[in-house]
Computed example of a mutant assay.
Amino acid sequence: MNKKTYKALWKAEESHAFQGWDFSYLDGRWELSDPPWDYRALVLSLLGPHERLLDMGTGGGEFLLSLHHPYALTSVSEGYPPNVALCRRVLEPLGITVGEVSGDDCLPFAGDSFDLVINRHEAFSPAEVCRVLRRGGYFLTQQVGGQNNRDLSERLIEHFQPAFPHHTLQNNVHALEGQGFEILRAQEAFLPERFYDVGALAFYCRIIKWEFPGFSVDGCYERLLALQQQLEAGRPIEGTAHRFLILAHKK
Results as ranks from 00 to 15, higher is better:
residue 4 K to Y: 07
residue 67 L to F: 06
residue 77 S to K: 06
residue 96 I to N: 01
residue 185 R to L: 13
residue 182 E to H: 08
residue 17 A to D: 12
residue 68 H to E: 15
residue 141 T to S: 13
residue 80 Y to I: 08
residue 112 D to H: 12
residue 82 P to F: 03
residue 224 L to V: 10
residue 79 G to E: 03
residue 64 L to H: 03
residue 155 R to E: 12
residue 169 L to S: 05
residue 210 W to S: 15
residue 52 R to V: 03
residue 80 Y to T: 08
residue 30 W to Y: 15
residue 93 P to V: 03
residue 228 Q to Y: 04
residue 225 L to G: 03
residue 149 N to Q: 05
residue 83 N to V: 01
residue 43 V to F: 07
residue 110 A to T: 07
residue 79 G to V: 05
residue 107 L to M: 04
residue 59 G to A: 06
residue 15 S to W: 01
residue 250 K to S: 07
residue 79 G to D: 04
residue 152 L to Y: 01
residue 49 P to D: 05
residue 82 P to H: 04
residue 116 L to Q: 02
residue 24 S to F: 06
residue 138 Y to T: 03
residue 200 A to N: 04
residue 200 A to K: 03
residue 92 E to W: 00
residue 16 H to W: 12
residue 114 F to S: 02
residue 169 L to N: 06
residue 166 H to Q: 13
residue 239 G to K: 09
residue 24 S to G: 02
residue 106 C to Q: 13
residue 196 Y to D: 04
residue 235 R to K: 15
residue 9 L to C: 10
residue 209 K to A: 15
residue 199 G to W: 05
residue 169 L to V: 06
residue 47 L to E: 05
residue 248 A to S: 09
residue 239 G to W: 09
residue 127 A to I: 00
residue 79 G to H: 08
residue 79 G to N: 03
residue 193 E to V: 13
residue 77 S to C: 14
residue 106 C to E: 14
residue 123 A to R: 04
residue 240 T to Q: 15
residue 191 L to S: 11
residue 129 V to D: 02
residue 66 S to E: 14
residue 72 A to R: 13
residue 41 A to L: 08
residue 201 L to F: 09
residue 21 W to F: 15
residue 190 F to K: 13
residue 6 Y to F: 14
residue 236 P to K: 11
residue 191 L to Q: 09
residue 237 I to Q: 10
residue 72 A to G: 03
residue 2 N to R: 11
residue 134 R to C: 08
residue 11 K to E: 15
residue 243 R to E: 08
residue 218 D to P: 08
residue 25 Y to R: 15
residue 208 I to R: 14
residue 93 P to H: 03
residue 1 M to Y: 07
residue 63 F to L: 14
residue 173 V to K: 03
residue 172 N to L: 06
residue 79 G to W: 06
residue 80 Y to V: 12
residue 25 Y to N: 12
residue 144 V to R: 07
residue 221 Y to P: 09
residue 89 R to P: 00
residue 196 Y to G: 06
residue 177 E to W: 01
residue 182 E to L: 10
residue 124 F to A: 13
residue 26 L to P: 09
residue 81 P to L: 08
residue 158 E to H: 06
residue 85 A to L: 07
residue 54 L to P: 11
residue 18 F to T: 11
residue 99 G to L: 01
residue 18 F to K: 11
residue 212 F to H: 09
residue 9 L to G: 00
residue 56 M to P: 04
residue 214 G to R: 07
residue 99 G to I: 02
residue 192 P to D: 06
residue 251 K to A: 09
residue 226 A to Q: 15
residue 78 E to V: 02
residue 132 V to K: 05
residue 28 G to D: 10
residue 20 G to P: 04
residue 4 K to L: 12
residue 93 P to Y: 01
residue 204 Y to C: 06
residue 38 D to Y: 06
residue 159 H to P: 00
residue 28 G to A: 12
residue 43 V to T: 13
residue 177 E to Y: 02
residue 170 Q to Y: 04
residue 171 N to S: 11
residue 34 D to V: 06
residue 198 V to R: 12
residue 78 E to T: 08
residue 18 F to P: 11
residue 206 R to F: 05
residue 116 L to N: 01
residue 82 P to V: 08
residue 40 R to Q: 14
residue 72 A to P: 00
residue 44 L to C: 11
residue 155 R to F: 00
residue 44 L to Q: 15
residue 168 T to Y: 02
residue 178 G to Q: 04
residue 56 M to A: 11
residue 122 E to M: 00
residue 19 Q to V: 12
residue 71 Y to C: 08
residue 34 D to R: 15
residue 68 H to K: 14
residue 241 A to C: 09
residue 124 F to G: 01
residue 216 S to M: 10
residue 7 K to H: 08
residue 79 G to C: 05
residue 100 E to G: 00
residue 188 E to Y: 01
